[in-house]
């Protein structure tokens, strides 16, 4: 690669990093606001106008808390846990195509850090190893509640990954590529996958809820039974990392849903624009869709009660996996029919 390309990618990565972290910080604020609106309250409004400095206040507070490691904990693994959670949550942003190419300083800049031809598998891979953050942290805490939580998290992740993977296969069948750029381009204009695969969308959405450990599937941090789950023993910024990682993965999951099912940066009437205007409008469209899904995630959290663990497993294994398998079969038959195999 040339030097300019290196610089371009480096700048892109830094921007992506900062934007993701900034958005995640403000999602914590947004979550509290949304919860307040749903419960006829106001929410945080003391730090700055409308409370918009609340994330800074929270972050500052977490930083200055005592950084505590329990006596009986496995020290290094205890530190490693939150780090892995944060790392895997941040990595998924690398393969997302944020918009069409942007022309700056006479150079075409692809708004995607890495257009690998296995983009969607990359996301699945990092989702699947995201559970290590919880497992290592939960086990290293040497606390039975944390351990329970780690075990719940891992079994939940593995169960829902299957249905999610099968649904992703159907989407890959629709577009004929594993690259997220190709998947997005196949949904040009309003040709979104959700109109062809509504069942797949619902299954994927439910799985995304489970994979990000959000209500109604937040059993790993089930307060009523497990105190705080895997972050029972954590404090200070290590705890902050866990909470933060949850919001980062909430954001990236919403982006992935937008890209896979709602056309990514495509929007109706995009053929009338070109160049930088198209790129910026596309970026705006993707963010609009993303924030809609973030809102839906929060909406669900403040509406539904938590599942029981056996119900969770029944839903995953006995409902979602058969549904997604049948859906995949039908998609395969229709695709084969369209290709003229019969």
């Amino acid at each position: 690669m040339e030097t300019s390309e290196w610089i371009e990618k480096f700048v892109l990565i830094v921007i992506l990093f900062l934007v993701t972290l900034g958005i995640a910080a403000y999602l914590t604020y947004f979550e509290r606001k949304v919860a307040a609106w749903f419960q006829d309250r106001i929410g945080p409004d003391r730090a700055g106008p409308f409370g918009i400095l609340q994330p800074l206040a929270d972050g500052g507070k977490l930083f200055f808390k005592e950084d505590f490691i329990p006596f009986a904990a496995e020290k290094w693994l205890f530190i490693l846990g939150p780090g892995i959670a944060m790392f895997t949550a941040l990595m998924t942003g690398a393969v997302i195509p944020w918009s069409t190419d942007l022309v700056l300083f006479g150079q075409e800049i692809a708004l995607q850090v890495a257009d690998v031809n296995i983009g969607i598998l990359f996301i699945m891979g990092f989702l699947s190893i995201g559970v290590y953050g919880i497992m290592i942290g939960g086990w290293a805490s040497n606390n039975k509640y944390s351990l329970f939580s780690a075990i719940r998290a891992s079994s939940q992740m593995i169960s829902y990954e299957l249905a999610m993977g099968i649904v992703v296969i159907t989407i890959v069948m629709m577009s004929g590529s594993l690259s997220l750029r190709d998947i997005t381009n196949a949904q040009h204009g309003m040709n979104w996958n959700v109109f062809y695969q509504p069942v797949a969308f619902i299954v994927f959405f439910v799985c995304a809820l489970a994979e990000t450990n959000r209500a109604p599937f937040d059993l790993p941090e089930c307060e009523s039974e497990l105190i705080g789950g895997y972050h029972t023993e954590y404090g200070s910024m290590k705890m902050g990392f866990y909470l933060f990682a949850e919001y980062v993965s909430l954001f990236t999951s919403s982006v992935v849903i937008a890209v896979l099912f709602f056309g990514g940066y495509n929007f109706p009437g995009m053929d009338y624009f070109e160049g930088n205007t198209l790129a910026l409008l596309g970026l705006g469209a993707l963010f609009l869709k993303t924030f809609f899904f973030v809102f839906v995630f929060m909406w669900i959290r403040w509406t539904l009660p938590r599942f029981r663990f056996d119900q969770l497993m029944h839903l995953g294994w006995k409902s979602l996996i058969p549904i997604s398998l049948i859906n995949m079969l039908i998609t395969g038959i229709v695709t084969a029919f369209n290709e003229g195999w019969f």
């Binding site: 598998l121 699947s128 780690a150 075990i151 593995i158």
Partner: peptide
């Protein structure tokens, strides 16, 4: 061989090793 690399991570690191860890923790 990106495909094999990522499948190795998904299947072995992401699923099988999680199960191993699961059992060992118990």
């Amino acid at each position: 061989a990106q495909f094999i690399a990522i499948v190795n991570i998904i299947v072995y690191a992401g699923a099988i090793m999680v199960l191993f860890l699961f059992v060992l923790m118990l």
